[in-house]
């Protein structure tokens, strides 16, 4: 069983939901990333999403754009990101790691070389934001061959036919983008999310992660009530950005953000069981 599937099986048995923090690799400095990953796991993260910095992050709001810019100041490349995962895996062989980024760095490295290297260092899933399944057959085949889960986005305006097509191409989990817009945008309509998740569950048994608009314990708990996983990006990354001048403080303070969400989600699931 893949690390991602094992993770969701474990959580399901425990009646808990997955908490998935997103951080951009190399932000604000490459030396911060691996200690930060460990701190997030200790604070209650179940899966880690590691962003591959890109010069033109078209689907991201200002918070993650700036994280990319900070990481690129130190020339954090896809190769460095893979090295960070290798280093993380030396001390943690359980927590799944999903790489999230844009296609061009992967395309430049070469799909086969990338997939082989990612599998070798202990990556579990890959989400290329600007690669819909229609354009993705070649990369998907490479990922599958190396037992990596291709993870795709679903959006509020994805038609039923597209939801079906995307779920057929995906494994591990699918990632529902809870609102139209870029990362870090406005607030969240939990009821609309619940309605759409019902539609998605009708066509797939894959766990569903929900991201965009989750910024604190309360919104995390509300999403956890309807989803299998809660993805937290901009709220965490903006905390990291604010501490860019004092990188030593980042692991502990970022962990505090995640710990608060963890508590809220677990409390919610306990009260939900009653």
């Amino acid at each position: 069983m893949s690390r991602i599937a094992a993770c969701f099986t474990r959580l399901r048995a425990a009646g808990r939901k997955a908490l998935i923090p997103f951080v951009t690799a190399g932000d604000p400095h490459p030396a911060v990333t691996v200690p930060l990953m460990h701190a997030l796991v200790e604070a209650g993260a179940d899966i880690l999403e590691l962003g591959i910095p890109f010069s033109d992050p078209m689907a991201d709001g200002p918070v993650i754009q700036q994280a990319c810019e900070r990481a690129l100041l130190h020339h954090t490349s896809l190769r460095h990101v893979l090295e960070m995962v290798r280093e993380f895996r030396a001390d943690n062989d359980i927590t799944p790691v999903v790489l999230m980024g844009y296609l061009n760095p992967v395309e430049v490295m070469g799909y086969e070389i990338f997939a082989r290297a990612a599998a070798a260092v202990g990556v579990d899933g890959v989400l290329t934001v600007d690669l819909p399944p229609e354009e993705g057959s070649e990369l998907i085949a490479c990922l599958r061959e190396h037992r990596l889960d291709p993870i795709f986005l679903l959006a509020p305006n994805s038609t039923p036919a597209r939801v079906k097509k995307i779920c057929a191409a995906a494994s591990g989990f699918v990632y529902y983008v809870s609102l139209k817009g870029v990362t870090g945008a406005a607030s969240l309509d939990t009821e609309a999310v619940a309605r759409k998740l019902k539609e998605i569950r009708a066509v797939t048994d894959l766990p569903i992660g929900v991201g965009f608009g989750i910024r604190d314990g309360d919104s995390a708990a509300r999403v956890a009530a309807v989803a299998d996983a809660v993805v937290v990006g901009s709220a965490l990354v903006s905390k990291i950005g604010a501490l860019a001048g004092t990188p030593d403080k980042i692991p502990a303070q970022a962990a505090a953000v995640i710990a608060e969400m963890r508590r809220a989600m677990d409390h919610q699931s306990v009260s939900g069981d009653r």
Binding site: M58, P132, E134, E135, L153, A155, P156, N157
Partner: peptide
């Protein structure tokens, strides 16, 4: 039909833009 000129072109965007 998918907007390809040989290997070029296509539609490489995030899911939210696919329907529009």
């Amino acid at each position: 039909a998918n907007g390809h000129f040989g290997v070029y072109g296509g539609r490489f965007v995030a899911e939210t833009l696919m329907e529009p």
